[in-house]
Design a binder for these strands. Sequence first.
DNA 1: TAATGCGCACCCC
DNA 2: GGGGTGCGCATTA
Length: 425
Amino acid sequence: MSESKYREWILDTIDSLRSRKARPDLDRICRMVRRRHGSEPDRTCAELEKLIQEQTVLKVNYKGSISYRNAAKVQRRSRKKDDVSAALTAAARRSAVEEASHSDLSNGDSALGAAEQDDDELEGDPIMAMDTDSNADEEGADESQDGQDRPSPSGHTYEDAAVHCVAVRAVSAPSSPSGTRPALNSVAGPGTGLDCVSFQKAGERPSSLPPSSPRALTNNDWAYDSTVCPAEHQHPGTQKEKEAATKPAVQPVTSSPSAVKNNTKKEDGAKVEDSSRLSDQLVPDYAARVEESKNGPDGRPQTLSPPADNNSPMKKNSDESPFKKAEESLVNGDNGDDVSVKKEKMSQNLLQWSVADVASYFSAAGFPEQAVAFRTQEIDGKSLLLMQRSDVLTGLSIRLGPALKIYERHVKVLQRTHFLEYEDL
DNA sequence: TAATGCGCACCCC
DNA sequence: GGGGTGCGCATTA
């Protein structure tokens, strides 16, 4: 079965569920896909995860339970402001209020942040992110403490699938101890999606942590990620009670399955931080993951080692390309100061990247086709630094999916890194 | 019995 | 007031 097929099925299913006013949750989606197409829940779950990562589907925590949205249909509700902060403000405000009113996390709907398609910045990214979950606080605690799984209304039929997802995620999502989300307020400008999401509560950011603090948003991103499915299993009890209170509860974000309990039970302090951090909306778990994977120990973004081009400036450092070193250091767990030095070099080098360097970089990053577009558009390091989201999404005439990934995972990261260095100077 | 339809309440803007 | 969401119940297959 092709992925596109699944994409279609899943999106159709979500749309269908929505149209009949049923919550598009994992259970229903799996059930409907199986009924309609005979696809196994496990597979559906896996595909759904992919779609979430692709941001084709948004996973949101709405009223205490996970829902899935068709990203293409989630329109920004009212975000008009251009800057991220503004965009986030609403969500942040909402969640803040809700949190304040009850210890639960609540989040309105995360869909709220949904993808924006046109605005330059806010857009999509952020939101797409989808996952809204937010925190792990109480619910997480409840979950782990009560040890109850959320019975699927229809009878757990698909719990297994959900569980599977968890397992899968747990495996694929390292608890990234050192990784973190890059500076939230990206240099890329206000409104860079993912950041936005994570920042929605900028004002509530863990006090001691700077927006760009590596520690900010680390575990939770992962946590959420890995617990997405578990979220589906919330126990009815608490869930109901919470809902009864008419408060949208934000899901607890827990970390990997094995860590879930530990985190929810042990790290109360951490949870507090986490919850305030993610308390609301869409947390691009996927993006977070991606970024985390790229972030260095210090939380600064790390990038791939661009393939040194023979004529490029980078070639000079081919053997000790800053990228390479940084990457290696990451791999080796090297947290030394030289990482920052290396990054500095990297950013400096960015200005020296030639069109070929840029193309090589993206090619090496797994976007060979898109690399051609960069080359065609003669994007060199300087141009890359000036690129905005819309430029990447629409200016290169490349497919939206890869474009989003390229922008979020690479362009933004590179820009951020560069500007951070610049600021430091 | 599962799937579907939909009134209604809630929330946010 | 409008729009999105989804619970809960009635209806249908």
